[in-house]
């Protein structure tokens, strides 16, 4: 029998990308593609939003992947199977619209490849023809390629430095000239989602992006995740996390994401300095 919020399975996806499967049957029972969790690792920890990338109702587990980039995620990366997180809340946000659209283009980048595949699977099951694009910074950051290939009708790989697959996303422009798509979903870094939205805009392909702005409560209380969509102020947590990519003010979003950057860096730096000492704070 697992304990609540126990790490049932830890998988190293790539260089600094890790996947946790957590025991939380109440969340597993309600999760749908597109929704997210708020994870609190320990008493002194932050509340961080992470997109759901899998769930198993029978086992009572839910999975999420994270990129070890800040203090909280680096610290979580040190946790092992059998350790427990303090709290996981969810599922939060609105589920993705999954139905038969026809031909669907699914573009995922960086850590968001993991939740993208949940959507790819759902889109496929709904009877769509799915073309998947996996993007990464360079070869060593790519993961889940085989899973993506098995789930999709077509698979393309792209990297920022060209070390694997296409260099950058420019090839998409050529692809759209010859192939028609009825819908596009993009999950990944903001700059990637902005680029994808600009590429699909001339073709009028409805493009759904998943925004992961800074959040604290994740249920509409704090308003830190506010984002301008079509000139209106909306909350990433309760109005999203998915929005029409052609209407999102990406520049404003990027600016707000950088708000606490100096503090995040300080926190991470101090932790690195102390981190080596294994002071035990990461252990339950």
């Amino acid at each position: 029998m697992y304990k609540m919020y126990e790490i049932v399975c830890k998988k190293r996806l790539a260089h600094k990308e890790t996947l946790f499967e957590i025991y939380a049957p109440q969340i597993a029972a309600k999760s749908q593609p597109g929704q997210f969790l708020i994870v609190v690792p320990h008493e002194r920890g932050e509340r961080i939003p992470l997109t759901i990338c899998g769930y198993d109702i029978k086992k009572g587990t839910v999975s999420f992947a994270f990129h070890e980039v800040g203090k909280t995620t680096k610290e979580m990366g040190l946790m092992e199977e059998g350790d427990c997180l303090l709290n996981v809340t969810g599922p939060l946000g609105n589920p993705s619209e999954i139905k038969k659209f026809g031909k669907v283009l699914c573009v995922g980048g960086s850590i968001m490849i993991a939740p993208l595949l949940l959507q790819v699977k759902a889109m496929k099951e709904a009877g769509n023809h799915v073309t998947t694009v996996l993007g990464c910074r360079s070869k060593e950051f790519l993961f889940m390629e085989d899973e993506a290939r098995a789930l999709s009708d077509k698979l393309y790989i792209a990297s920022d430095d060209g070390s694997i697959g296409y260099k950058g996303l420019d090839f998409l422009k050529e692809l759209l000239k010859i192939e028609k798509f009825d819908r596009c979903v993009a999950l990944g870094p903001v700059v990637m989602m902005r680029e994808v939205s600009e590429i699909t805009r001339p073709y009028g392909i409805p493009t759904i992006v998943t925004l992961t702005p800074i959040m604290i409560d994740g249920m509409g209380m704090c308003g830190v995740c506010r984002v301008t969509v079509g000139g209106k102020m909306l909350f990433g947590c309760v109005d999203g996390p998915e929005f029409d990519g052609h209407k999102v003010d990406f520049d404003g979003l990027i600016q707000r994401q950088r708000m606490m950057l100096p503090e995040e860096r300080l926190s991470s730096m101090l932790w690195e300095m102390h981190g080596e000492c294994k002071c035990g704070r990461n252990k339950a």
Binding site: R44, G45, E46, R47, K71, T72, I216, M259, M260, P262, E263, E264, L266, S267, L270
Partner: peptide, 13 residues
């Protein structure tokens, strides 16, 4: 408890 940052992880500017 951002007033105790960085002892607590959530910052406030």
């Amino acid at each position: 408890k951002a007033y105790a940052f960085p002892e607590y992880d959530t910052p406030i500017r």
